[in-house]
Design a protein around this nucleic acid. Structure first.
Lengths: 227, 227
DNA sequence: CTACTCTGCCCGTACGTGCGGTCAGTCCAC
DNA sequence: GTGGACTGACCGCACGTACGGGCAGAGTAG
């Protein structure tokens, strides 16, 4: 009926990736509980059984979505941390990156963010949870380093990281990638308020927040569309 | 079987409030989709039919939870805005109040926050959505006033409000009211970073963030446990 | 080249379960 | 009698997933 988009010689992973992509979008749009095999299968013109064949259970499917997402985020974070040294620049990079995800990978980002809570509860999510914790630890370490280096005013690094993550992870509830609000502007404003709030001087704040500045450019290069 | 906790002479509204409270807790713990009539009824030792009798549908039940929650938040906000005049104090009050909810009304707060997205999608949520918008507008107005009065450095009030709400609304994913992290400390740290980020001077930042200061006390009085 | 087998992708169906909601009817207060 | 609170049996449906089989390409022996 629906002719195969891939070459008839069978794609490497079959339609596995296709399934995961569609499922991710459905989770982003309706949430995990409301996303179901039937709709995904119908949209792809395949049987529900095919999905089960590839992933086993719905839980495992979500776990794989989360793990793939976090792996990319971790790789990117390590990449830009390797290029940026100053704590204020590093914090700004996390903000620029966080906003960038919402635009460049809206589906996976929303799916991840609206279902984060399952990382805590559900079994089978240990890997994804560990990845998330690792990411958070990177941010906490940067905030801590900044305080010790005297770049940031003294304060609780962990609480600050939660305050920062909150702003970014909440974006899925209001940010529309197709809207007229530009992501660079969001990132810039968030950067300015946050860095100023950490006690960084106005000149360095402006430089790090600038959408055309070196920090934003570094993040853009590192987070380039993957192969 | 289970003897009625209320006086045998039948409570005022019947067991309506009891049902709503238990349902709210279930939504907070499992999310709306996983919360169901059967479990609520079993926990209260009543029939599913009773719940339907009082509320009609599950949707309406959630709508009522959200509306009740937002009405209280709006009342409180108007109350402390009436007592505080300075923009920085007002912003601090919103933060103190936001953190306070997570401790004093954990169930309703978590239920509201984890299901906010339904305010946008679902029909029947118009009232709750309007209340939420009204609350947000209060914050935006305060931020805007602060900029115009020269108390805050220039910047986008709407974006700043979203940044602020994000930090507070994300709390449900990590804050444990029974944990050893004290809510006053969270509020203080959030206040300091935010106000400093808005360009407020260090002395006023400390005063407004102080858990024992006048702003925090004002919020505590206004948000006192309701009758 | 041919024939056979193996293997992995995919299909369709059927089953069990959980849940929202219906309904007829009971009990009790006024 | 009237009306509201409450019950418990029941319905229909949606959804996860188990299962048996079909089918095409790869490998292999002759």
């Amino acid at each position: 009926m629906t002719e195969p988009v891939v070459a008839p010689g069978r794609a490497r992973g079959g339609r596995r990736d296709e399934i995961l992509t569609t499922f991710t979008r459905h989770v982003a749009e309706r949430g995990y509980d409301r996303a179901n095999f039937g709709d995904v299968a119908a949209e792809l013109g395949m049987s529900k059984g095919t999905i089960v064949h590839h992933f086993g259970t719905k839980d495992r499917m979500l776990a794989e979505v989360q793990e793939r997402y976090m792996r990319r985020r971790l790789d990117e974070a390590h990449a830009f941390l390797g290029r940026l040294g100053a704590p204020d620049e590093r914090v700004a990079a996390f903000v620029h990156a966080g906003v960038r995800y919402s635009t460049h990978e809206p589906a996976t980002t929303v799916a991840f963010q609206r279902e984060v809570v399952r990382l805590t509860d559900e079994p089978g999510m240990e890997t994804a949870r560990a990845q998330r914790d690792a990411y958070r630890d990177l941010v906490v370490a940067v905030l801590q380093d900044g305080v010790e280096a005297g770049v940031f005013v003294p304060g609780d690094a962990r609480l600050r990281s939660l305050q920062m993550f909150g702003s970014l992870h909440w974006m899925w509830t209001w940010f529309d990638p197709a809207g007229r609000l530009r992501p660079e502007d969001v990132a810039a404003e968030f950067c300015r308020t946050l860095l100023r709030g950490l006690g960084v001087g106005e000149e360095r704040v402006s430089a790090a927040a600038d959408p055309a500045g070196s920090v934003a450019r570094c993040v853009a290069e590192v987070c380039a569309p993957r192969s």
